[in-house]
Each structure stands twice: as C-alpha cells, then as structure tokens.
C-alpha cells in the first residue's frame, strides 16, 4: 500500500467524520462550550485566590494552561468516537475494503485536529475578551498554536488506541473519569512548585505541563516556575513529549485496528 493512496483514503474517511459533525453538531459544540465553562470557572471563581511563584497575573498564567488542557481533554472525544464506530457495521466494510489499515485512524486524527483548531481559536478569542494577551511575536504565537496541535495530535493516537482496546462502556467511562485527575496533575491551574514535592515532580513531567510551559513562554505569559527543565527549555520538552507519545501509540493503534474483530 503506497503512501499517496493511504493519504487519499485517510482524507476520504476524514471527510466522512466531518460530515457526521455537520449532520449531528452537538458533540463538537458541547465540547467547545464545556471548555469555555471551565475557563470561566477557573479564571473567575478560583483565580482570585491564587498567587504565582515568580509573580504575574493569574489569568495570563491560566490561559495557556487551558489551551493545553483542552488539547488533552480532546482525547476523550477521539476515544469515544473510535469506540462507538468500531462497534458499527460500517467498520466491517472498511476492514473488507482494499485500504490501508492506518486510513481509518488517520482520518479520525485529521477530523479531530480540524475540530481542535476551531476549539483553540474560540478559546483564544474568549481569552482575549476577558483580558488575556499574547505578548510574544506573531511567529512565536503561531509556534505556540503549532505546539498545542502537536500535543493534540500525539494524544489523539492514545485516544484511538484506547478506543480500539477498551470498546466496552466500562473502559470508556474509566478513561473519561481518569482524564480529570491526570489533567489537573499538571501546571495548568497551579504551579508545580506550590504542590507537595512528589506531586510537583509528577506534575512537571506531565506532557500537558510541558506544552503549557512552552505556550506561556511563547505568548509572553507568566511562567509560574522558576527553575527546572520546564523553566529552562520548555519548547524543546513540548516538542519531544508528543513525539515520544506518537512514536508509541501510532504503531499500537494501527496494530489494534488490524486486530479488531467485528
């Protein structure tokens, strides 16, 4: 199976996934509404009582974290879509067609990235409305957006893998609950330096923290941390973490898809 035809097939599947949203737009709309709600809760309800190490405005610290968190929470939607799809008859047909085994997962990835790009733009517009500002240059801001989508792309494959492996309701529910503590155990809302040492250590190594730290630097927002690798080389870590995740979960997803029995 050559690359051109695999990409063409993925494109066709992606258009199909996007058409599903066009016909039934509640899932993506609810996803965006949910992220805005989180932003308002943390920015206004809790934000006033949080002091940052190294100083700075909390809302400016929070926004890049929210962007990264939205990218991570996206994996839940990916997983649910893949798990539901794999139980339906159309998957049987896809598997019997002479197409590449990455076409269906890659099509999903394309559609979800498109969805996340829109979500990110809405969130950034919302942030600008409530007083967040990107202080860096245009190219730095673009790089930040690129890193956010890069994180989304990598976690997408984790979502695809989990969706294929945990097809039962129970497994999907477990992941939907687990993304919360894992998402919060990061630098998104609170600086890891303000956490107990061991928690702070885990939070620093959360891939979401790396992308959040890189975005804070590139957008010129308060870093919230004063030393450690995330303070010194956030962009490099935000490039490498998703690369590692993708290297592990792209092949695992392709294998899980081939092994799917419908």
């Amino acid at each position: 199976m050559n690359t051109t035809s695999a990409l063409r097939q993925s494109w066709i599947i992606m258009l199909r996934d996007l058409k599903h949203w066009q016909r039934e737009p509640w899932t993506p709309l609810f996803g965006i509404a949910f992220t805005i709600m989180l932003l308002l809760v943390f920015g206004y309800l809790l934000g006033g009582s949080i002091e940052l190490p190294g100083g700075g405005d909390y809302l400016s610290y929070l926004m890049p974290g929210m962007f990264a968190l939205a990218m991570m929470f996206g994996l839940e939607g990916t997983m649910t879509a893949i798990a539901n799809d794999s139980k339906k008859g159309v998957t049987h047909r896809f598997r019997s067609l002479p197409i590449s085994s990455v076409a269906v997962p890659l099509g999903r990835a394309g559609a979800d990235l498109a969805n996340s790009t829109v979500e990110l733009l809405v969130l950034m517009a919302g942030g600008l409305l409530i007083g967040w500002r990107a202080g860096g240059s245009w190219s730095e801001s673009l790089l930040a957006v690129g890193l956010l989508l890069w994180l989304r792309f990598a976690l997408l494959w984790l979502g695809i893998f989990l969706g294929l492996v945990l097809r039962g309701e129970g497994g999907v529910m477990a992941v939907q609950i687990l993304v919360w503590p894992i998402g919060f155990l990061s630098s998104v809302f609170v600086s890891p330096q303000d956490m107990p040492a061991w928690l702070g250590f885990l939070a620093q190594w959360n891939p979401v923290s790396a992308t959040a730290a890189a975005c804070r630097e590139l957008f010129g927002n308060p870093a919230g941390i004063t030393d450690g690798i995330l303070a010194d080389h956030p962009v490099a870590v935000a490039l490498v973490w998703p690369l590692v995740l993708a290297a592990v979960f792209v092949p695992l997803s392709a294998r899980a898809y081939r092994r799917l029995s419908v």
Binding site: Q9, I12, K19, H20, K88, G89, V90, F94, L97
Partner: peptide
C-alpha cells in the same frame, strides 16, 4: 455494513472512492 449517519448516495460514493 453501512454508515447510518450518511445518506445512501454518500455511502456508495465513499465506498467507491475508497475502492
């Protein structure tokens, strides 16, 4: 083995293109 959300024609066009 069909996509329930797509129209009948869209199903056939998609499968034909994947062929």
């Amino acid at each position: 083995a069909l996509d329930e959300i797509l129209h009948g024609r869209e199903n056939l066009v998609m499968f034909a293109r994947l062929h």
